[in-house]
């Protein structure tokens, strides 16, 4: 069982875990979107950032993604470091650039992972003044309701469809794999 340090706190951790799992198990507030206990890590949302230090002398540290960093003996991290906290807040601000601002009338309001993470990182005012992207929803089979205008690109729908529920995937080949992430940001039409 490797020993690691998070904000000076010594933790005995399970071999093979990643740092995000360690933090969540230890009750630390590290936000995340794309990691999922059943589907693992992809490192796309960049939300679970924290600082990793090279050694005891290193005071600068560098940003790493918790879900993409495996535990190693003696590794040192900080969740509370300002640099990491600022970055996590910046990621939420980015995700909200194209997300509707209508929580009070949204069906998820009050039990929404995005809301929880936004409150967790403390982001409130955003500076973007442009228009928001709009999309058409896709039919992703009977098990997934697709609401693309609210998509924060966690890839969970795609991973769920392509790996876990082969049996329940829509039959039509054109929609057997969602193409939610196409066209990429720069090529989306802005209204």
């Amino acid at each position: 069982m490797p020993t690691i340090f998070i904000d000076g706190q010594e933790l005995q951790v399970k071999d093979g875990d990643n740092i995000l799992e360690v933090c969540l198990n230890a009750g630390l507030n590290l936000p995340y979107f794309c990691w999922h206990p059943a589907m693992g890590s992809v490192g796309s949302c960049r939300q679970c950032a924290l600082l990793q230090y090279q050694n005891e002398e290193d005071t600068e540290g560098r940003i790493v993604m918790g879900c993409m960093t495996a535990v190693t003996e003696g590794a040192r991290f900080s969740v509370s470091a300002e640099k990491a906290a600022e970055f996590r807040s910046a990621v939420v601000e980015s995700l909200m650039l194209n997300h509707p601002h209508d929580c009070p009338v949204c069906a998820e309001g009050g039990e929404c992972h995005l809301q929880d993470m936004t409150v967790m990182v403390g982001h409130r005012d955003r500076r973007y003044t442009g228009t928001k992207n709009t999309f058409r929803n896709q039919y992703l089979g009977p098990l997934i309701h697709h609401e693309m205008n609210r998509c924060i690109t966690c890839y969970r729908c795609e991973r769920y469809l392509s790996r876990l529920r082969r049996r329940h995937r829509p039959r039509r080949p054109s929609i057997a794999r969602p193409t939610v992430f196409w066209p990429p940001a720069g090529r989306r039409t802005r209204k």
Binding site: S44, L95, L97, F181
Partner: peptide
């Protein structure tokens, strides 16, 4: 931008 990660996908258009 391929759109895979958040800072690039959202940040560059901003």
């Amino acid at each position: 931008s391929c759109g895979f990660c958040t800072p690039c996908r959202e940040g560059l258009p901003w």
